[in-house]
Write a protein that binds this DNA or RNA. Structure first.
Lengths: 328, 328
DNA sequence: CTGAAAGCGCTAACAC
DNA sequence: GTGTTAGCGCTTTCAG
């Protein structure tokens, strides 16, 4: 900046004013400065700028998701970045890979960079560290899952209602033996979906049968094995509710034999309508999740200090065939 | 920091040393400082730190892709972030949505934040702005497509060889009328894939038939319409090479009627093996792309000033059925 | 309308 | 081992 000032024959202060588009500079002076800027290829150092400026922070937010490669979070990230871009804000990104340690590290690195706010898909573990004085003043929005014991804005989808809807749909097609296949119940979304499954049974007066409930399925293969187990029961299910896409895919190949099973999955899949059978799913809208989270965060950044809000988005039942199979 | 110093009864300099883990501080002093840090919830301001430190820049890189929501770029981003994290580096992210203006804006914002380097999926348009003095000293790596006229490191996949392989595969199954369905040839990857298609024909001595070549298909519906046109020819094709996944999906439903067509697509799809027919594809490895780009960038950042390098990754032919249909 | 001085939070370089 | 001084690149504040 000093170089530009020298070349333009003005003081650094004037260069600052021109570069920042502040009023009160003679057009002629501004032009000279502009030329010097272009001649030298000068670019303002925004880090230094934000160091001195008190006004709007650093115009940077942090986004920390479980895994960027997951299309669900990728779409969320996209809409967060779009919202940030509309507001002239940059986005620092990170993946936790569900490791609380990595989460803590990255959050620390983000706040050390003076981000104006944080959008976070919390890992399962405790988030006491976010409550410390280090984070006072940095607004946080949790998205996709809440952070237990952390009083911050949260955007989730109504997993429980969605699961209930799925299972109710199956019951409406005459099924009475509906199995639940899920990942670990400790995962918040899974717990919610299982609760929704039970809600639906209860509403119909169908007693819960522990033999039909399988938790902790972490891979497609495990799901497949679980299904085999279910089919070996004396009174096997005629329908399945699969609680995430990995599990849905795992059972897909074994739906027809020996007896056809109806299935509704939670989470939409890219090509669900082209599978055989076309998959009926409960679908979520990751773009809306990201958009809502960004909206909340920016209103906090703008100074909104009201009580923490909880936004819950609805899911959608998409009927494509696999869930409309009537009981044999 | 001054507050911490006061509370610990030492000078700010000592706090700095402790917080930065520098040697040469008495353990007792370090302990006192540590307590004060925790009591106040102090966190170092890394922006200010990097302002003064000359050593390793800001430990931040910029990643600019076409669209974060695209699973291909999402996976690339994930591996870039992983590599960056391994090196204690943060990642600023952005989407261009293929708009050169947005690309320029975001690149400018990144460099204004003093990123140590840039990984870029260049838009189609010119990149003269990257050559200006403003970017001297900020290493850039282009990934997925080259930036015409820009002498920087580039990581791409061998689109041409992949396409050639796909078409050769179809020819080997007895087909002589193989059609090409692609997006605008002006898009670099599409141009390469079309060239590969022609290579394969030439190698077999099969003359190119313009009636079998369709460019500019931007949607699945357009691809479908193009296929209808091909089928109406007096001498219709018996096999297709589809040059991206959108096009592949577009034609998928019309492969069997009136006559069965063999097809090989460029780009793998998540559930390709579960479609009917299971899809034979040329698959790329976005994680490897991202990893290679990050590797190159970090070696540049570390001071490698050798001539710009071009890394070209191979594709893989994945045979699943749709491409192994013999000529009727 | 423009410039000089001071300082944002931190660390390099040197003194003690 | 620890403190002092100066200054990173910019903007605030106030004086001309």
């Amino acid at each position: 900046m000093k170089d530009v000032a020298r070349l333009a024959g003005v003081s650094p202060m004037t260069v600052s004013r021109v570069v920042s588009g502040e009023p009160g500079v003679a057009p002629a002076t501004a032009a000279k400065v502009g030329q010097a800027v272009r001649a030298l290829g000068y670019q303002r150092n925004d880090n230094a700028r934000h160091l001195r400026r008190k006004s709007p922070g650093t115009a940077t937010i942090g986004l920390l998701v479980d895994d960027l490669a997951n299309p669900f979070y990728a779409r969320m990230a996209r809409s967060v970045e779009d919202e940030a871009h509309r507001r002239g804000c940059l986005v620092l990104i990170g993946s936790t890979h569900d490791e609380p340690r990595r989460e803590r590290e990255v959050v620390a690195a983000f706040t050390a960079r003076q981000v104006d706010g944080l959008i976070l898909v919390p890992t399962a573990a405790g988030h006491g560290f976010l409550r410390g004085p280090a984070h006072a003043g940095t607004p946080v929005v949790c998205v996709d899952r809440p952070a237990p014991g952390l009083a911050v804005d949260t955007v989730t989808v109504d997993n429980r209602a969605g699961a209930r809807r799925a299972v109710t749909h199956l019951l409406a097609h005459g099924h009475t033996r509906v199995a639940y296949l899920g990942d670990r119940v400790g995962i918040w979304t899974q717990g919610q979906r299982c609760a929704g499954y039970l809600d639906a049974l209860t509403a119909r007066g169908i007693p819960e049968d522990p033999a039909l409930i399988r938790h902790g399925l972490r891979t497609g293969d495990q799901a497949r094995a679980a299904l085999a187990g279910l089919r070996a029961l004396p009174d096997p299910p005629t329908a399945l509710f699969t609680s995430n896409d990995l599990i849905t895919l795992g059972v897909l190949d074994d739906l027809d034999h020996p007896a056809p099973l109806a299935v509704v999955g939670f989470d939409d899949l890219p090509l669900a309508e082209r599978l055989t059978p076309p998959l009926t799913v409960i679908s979520q809208d990751p773009l809306a999740l990201g958009g809502a989270a960004a909206g909340l965060l920016f209103s906090r950044i703008a100074g909104d200090t009201s009580a923490p809000r909880s936004v819950v988005l609805e899911t959608r039942l998409v009927e494509r065939g696999s869930g409309e199979l009537r009981r044999a």
